[in-house]
């Protein structure tokens, strides 16, 4: 409770565009002859956070930590099991699909796989035009003008309008996805690992394009990635997820220079360093990520934590404020 109030108070200082309050997403596991629910995969387990207007909040975590699910729940592509999502102060967590349609104008998503996220039967013009057809009453001429200007904005040519996705490389396709996501002038974009399917050289191009577009169009990004250096490059604040929960959330420099949570420390120590002097001592985590259907009691990280002690298995640590917007969920910090 105290946490929420604090977060809310902090939220009033800056303009909050999106706020999550105790959001959970459990996927039922069906089993037995009668296919009844025998358990839950707790993909997102009690997450509260807020996103400020104009910032980029990076979400990092291992595979299976629930970061993509979180992105989809925020956009209501998946319905939350519990909790509230406030977008622009409006509770969207239980809007009907029909009422949600108007809100979708302002929030968009860029997917990871540029090959699966574009319908191969539509040409580039149709792909970018589709959001305009669905959401606006613009005439054909106005739509074409908009498509052309966006294509140029993302670094493609207006003549590419008549080509099909199969004629483009991965990086170019991701540019098409970006154009499609931005054609409605959204305020908030969930970027679900938008560069992890691309070559490193192309990654930088696409990231820089996204950063430029953010400045130009005053976008807010929720940037999901497992790549710490990519997140460092683009984010203002970073949240570290572990097993469906937030382990640590802080401004970028705090996460990268003074990580508090043992998990964050272990993650950062695994990033290869170019400069030998700057290299941290590697903290090797033992064991695998525990199953999200049967998370450990108390702190979810205790099974792999090098600094584990007794209280960790009994009490689940809550996010506590360490000052300067640095929150950490660990019993080492009170």
């Amino acid at each position: 409770m105290a946490l929420q109030e604090k977060e809310l108070m902090q939220g009033t200082e800056q303009d909050v565009i999106l706020q999550l309050a105790n959001v959970k997403k459990y996927f039922p596991i069906k089993g037995g002859i009668l296919k009844h629910t025998i358990g839950h995969v707790k993909a997102v387990d009690d997450i509260s956070l807020h996103v400020f207007r104009g910032e980029t909040l990076g979400i990092v975590g291992e595979s299976g930590s629930g970061k993509s699910t979180l992105g989809r729940v925020i956009l209501r592509l998946l319905d939350p099991t519990e909790g509230e999502i406030y977008f622009e102060k409006q509770n969207i967590s239980n809007l009907t699909n029909r009422r949600l349609r108007a809100t979708r104008r302002d929030m968009q998503i860029i997917f990871q796989d540029p090959f699966a996220s574009l319908n191969s039967k539509m040409n580039v013009g149709e792909l970018i035009e589709e959001p305009l057809i669905v959401q606006t009453k613009l005439s054909k001429k106005e739509r074409t003008a908009k498509v052309t200007s966006l294509l140029e904005k993302v670094g493609l040519r207006s003549s590419d309008r008549l080509k099909y996705p199969h004629e483009f490389s991965g990086g170019q396709r991701q540019r098409i996805s970006i154009a499609r996501a931005l054609v409605l002038n959204p305020k908030f974009v969930v970027c679900d690992e938008p560069v992890s399917a691309l070559d490193v050289s192309i990654q930088a191009q696409v990231l820089n394009l996204m950063a430029d577009l953010q400045d130009e169009l005053q976008l807010t990004y929720l940037f999901i990635s497992h790549d710490l250096s990519v997140v460092k490059h683009i984010s203002d604040r970073v949240a570290v997820m572990y097993l469906g929960r937030i382990a640590e959330i802080a401004p970028k420099h705090a996460i990268y220079h003074e990580p508090l949570h043992p998990y964050t420390q272990a993650l950062l120590s695994a990033v290869p360093a170019v400069d030998k002097k700057k290299a941290r001592e590697k903290i090797i985590l033992t064991g695998d990520l525990p199953s999200p259907s049967n998370p450990p009691s108390g702190c979810p990280f205790r099974t792999r934590c090098p600094k584990v002690h007794d209280v960790c298995s009994q009490v689940r640590p809550e996010l506590t404020d360490q000052g300067n917007g640095h929150f950490v969920a660990c019993h080492l910090y009170k």
């Binding site: 989809r72 956009l75 592509l77 949600l100 349609r101 108007a102 979708r104 104008r105 968009q108 998503i109 997917f111 990871q112 796989d113 699966a116 996220s117 574009l118 319908n119 191969s120 039967k121 539509m122 589709e130 959001p131 669905v134 959401q135 996805s177 499609r180 409605l184």
Partner: peptide, 25 residues
């Protein structure tokens, strides 16, 4: 498929998704 999720994300109606995205594929 992700492109169907993408169509939902832009607020496309069920009919549009069926006729524009499912049937052509």
């Amino acid at each position: 498929q992700e492109f169907v999720l993408g169509a939902k994300a832009i607020g496309a109606t069920d009919l549009r998704i069926i006729f524009k995205h499912f049937i052509p594929n």
